[in-house]
Design a protein around this nucleic acid. Structure first.
Lengths: 347, 347
DNA sequence: GTTAGCACTCAAAAACAAAGAGTGCTAATA
DNA sequence: TATTAGCACTCTTTGTTTTTGAGTGCTAAC
């Protein structure tokens, strides 16, 4: 939706110019600059009048009297909303850079974060898909040596988990085979929530003397999923924030980078993004709008990508409010596309 | 080895006092401070004379005339060497914090880095073990569905790798069994270097019509190992460097944190550390001594831990030159011990 | 409606002025 | 001979004042 701003065309142009120059320079922009470096052919005085209006309307503000203007959050918002409505751009070539190294999901996502950080010069994050309603695709137990069994669990989307289980007495080949049969026939295609206590009891009963092994395997399954529940987040380019003076004073830099390192706070972003069901799946949080308080002086752009099976992951870009929204939105769309495509191809 | 410093006992005491107070405050320390807050009972003037000597000998220096003295790299070196010779301390309790969450190696090491960072307030890194001469312990292929086979490879030290392989036509159960037999009998206990072209050719021959599958599996093996070759590095507490003003100006902070994020430069540290064969396995690099140029204004303490099978990993602490060496060295020894122990127990 | 002109404001930069910590040296002292 | 008190000197730090310049708002002319 376009905001009901009701600004004259000229005001809009001036606002646009202010924002764009501010995006580049990071310095408050004065009336003279606009008057000179724009094709409006208006004197600085006229611009000043318009700017006074724009300020009154809340789109721009002065850091102090006798300084130029900078966009307010509201101003950015308008700008971004305008951008969002623009036609889609041609995609791709990003693909090459990514396919390159990527074969495992983990690496693919790491790479994605890196590519995005490089191409935008902001800090980026990519989350692994959350498997809320994920299904077990395959389970296999194998003996590694006399006392150790390895359990390999493949989930939907080819997410692979494995876990080593210590057992007291060796399993015969035959029994191993039986157990594998049992587990697979019972659990295959099963969604994770569906594995309840009743089912577990039944399984153990059927396993007979090996019920304890089954117990351990189920623990392993639970564990494997548990680990995945708090999904992984890959970040890149956190130090890019040093490039923007307004964020790189010790205090802010410390906090933001810390958030990136600890990742804890980023999960908030992920859940927030995933819950919000938008058409394009791209969201822009400007300043205070962000779900993560640490980043209240930043802008955060997030997008979701899909894996099928209802699995969704998140991509995020964190930068200064004066971020190059145009470029970022484009890059975001591209990456989103790439990821969607890749995962669907791999399926 | 103790350096041949040949300093008088008094000089040594003064140097010690200077370093210790500087470690705490981070400010140049003057003669008066030493005279007052030490049990030497000497006037500031006497101290000044001694300090002049110490400066001439290169153990301390003045940031500028009429400032107090700060330790030089040489001074720190002497101090650290003295510490290193001290008796071992009692270990442990760190174990609890770690065992807690740890079950997979990856998590264990992540946790280790975190614990260490918390306990020292410096930036830390832990590398996964390098498997130069690592052996294949177990290989298993399983069908996931009609077109996909999963290969699980367990290496020495229970390092698990897996990879999904796409195949054209389904394998019968029988053939799968045969392949597994073939692979295991041939490759088990084999060190990775030993898998050469000749062996590969022989394997393929024996696999007959499934030679292409074998090829893909071997690719997968190579790949799995490849991935491991450039080992993982887990870091924690990078933002701790903000706590030390002498490192936290934009320039340095940016560089150091970046090194931590990109990890590239840290591998240098790891290899350096691993190559150097010391008795205790703990090394201290002060300032310029560091293998990583980015950290020339820091001190870096590294240690190795062992996994058996000749696999070794690295632990590292990076902080200001005025780091609390005593504490750090103790923590380091503890962690080193914990890790050694854990991996050997798990074996 | 637009613009030139001017007085005014205010942050940032530059210039200047203590203040204070610490030194080196000399001369007196134990 | 080793230690110490005393003093002049040096430099950073801190605070104050001045200067500068970009940018504004307002008024009056176009």
């Amino acid at each position: 939706m376009i905001s009901e701003h009701g600004l004259s065309d000229r005001k809009l142009k001036i606002l646009h110019a202010i924002i764009q120059t501010y995006l580049e320079t990071g310095e408050p922009v004065g009336s003279r600059t606009i008057s000179k470096y724009t094709d409006l052919n208006l004197s600085s005085a006229t611009i000043r009048n318009e700017m006074a209006d724009l300020e009154e309307l809340g789109y721009i503000m002065q850091p102090h009297t006798s300084a130029g203007r900078i966009p307010s959050d509201k101003g950015y918002r308008l700008y971004v909303d305008m951008l969002m409505d623009e036609k889609e751009q041609e995609l791709s070539e990003m693909q090459e850079q990514m396919l390159d190294k990527a074969d495992k999901m983990e690496q693919l996502l790491k790479q994605a974060a890196k590519v995005l950080a490089n191409s935008t010069n902001y800090a980026t994050m990519v989350s692994t898909p959350m498997n809320n309603a994920n299904k077990i695709k395959f389970i296999q137990l194998s003996m590694v040596d006399a006392e150790q069994v390895i359990a390999v669990i493949v989930l939907g989307g080819n997410v692979i988990k494995n876990k080593i289980i210590n057992i007291e007495e060796p399993l015969s080949n035959e029994n191993l085979l039986k157990l594998n049969m049992l587990l697979n026939t019972t659990l295959n295609g099963m969604s994770i929530e569906a594995i309840n206590l009743g089912l577990i009891a039944r399984l153990k009963e059927q396993a007979g003397i090996h019920s304890q092994v089954v117990g351990k395997v189920l623990d392993a399954v639970a564990d494997a999923i548990q680990v995945d529940e708090d999904m992984q987040i890959y970040t890149s380019g956190a130090t890019n924030i040093f490039k923007y003076p307004e964020l790189s004073d010790k205090q802010s830099a410390q906090e933001i980078i810390n958030a990136f390192e600890e990742k804890q706070q980023l999960t908030e972003l992920v859940t927030q993004t995933l819950s919000q069901e938008e058409n394009t799946g791209i969201q822009v949080y400007i300043g205070d709008e962000t779900p993560v308080q640490t980043m209240k002086d930043c802008s955060v752009v997030t997008a979701t990508y899909e894996l099928g099976d209802g699995m969704k992951g998140t991509i995020g870009i964190i930068g200064p409010k004066r971020m190059d929204y145009e470029h970022v939105l484009k890059s975001m769309k591209r990456l989103q596309n790439e990821l969607d495509q890749m995962f669907h191809k791999n399926e």
